[in-house]
């Protein structure tokens, strides 16, 4: 467990996240999101959460981003569309930035946990075995609910993605 490396990788994720939300082209935003997710996964590995790091690479960067790539093929990427997108962002970024900054305000009141020994090391790596024992033991109902959510999403996506009238039967 190396918190310094985790912090470095997390800062990399933050910088690339800023680039994700400011790029005009969807493809560029997608590539920077990939950088964000991979550096977050490095941060997870450094924190001793090896299962989460591997799942981040395999499912997030591998599967979820691949779905985005299929949809990106349908987007208009002509120079005119990019110019319009850039103009929209240039006009309207100040009020959202102020709202987002308001979320950060309570953090300036942070003074650290009372009576905490700031130099003492703490924490330990959590193995995938412990995670499995938790998920398929006390958290089994949570796993069932999550599988129901995935099934509902699958049926909804199939229903919405079908050609023809979405409200029709059959």
């Amino acid at each position: 467990m190396n918190a310094t490396f985790a912090l470095w990788a997390g800062s990399l994720a933050l910088i690339s996240a800023l680039l994700v939300v400011t790029r005009a082209s969807v493809v560029h935003a997608l590539i920077w999101l990939l950088v964000t997710l991979l550096s977050l996964s490095a941060s997870f590995f450094a924190l001793g959460a090896s299962f989460a790091g591997a799942a981040q690479i395999l499912i997030y960067a591998g599967a979820i981003l691949a779905v985005f790539v299929f949809v990106v093929m349908t987007v208009d990427a002509s120079p005119k569309a990019l110019e319009q997108e850039r103009a929209r962002l240039g006009r309207a970024w100040v009020p959202p930035a102020l709202v987002a900054a308001l979320v950060l305000v309570p953090l300036f009141a942070w003074r650290g946990a009372p009576g905490a020994d700031t130099a003492a090391p703490m924490g330990a790596a959590v193995s995938a075995t412990d995670l499995g024992m938790l998920l398929f033991g006390p958290w089994a109902a949570v796993v069932e609910i999550a599988s129901g959510l995935l099934l509902a999403a699958l049926m909804g996506a199939r229903h919405l993605g079908r050609r023809g009238k979405p409200e029709g039967r059959g």
Partner: peptide
């Protein structure tokens, strides 16, 4: 992990 790096990761 020290308390400081924990706080920094939470802020991140």
């Amino acid at each position: 992990m020290t308390e400081d790096s924990f706080t920094a990761l939470m802020l991140l």
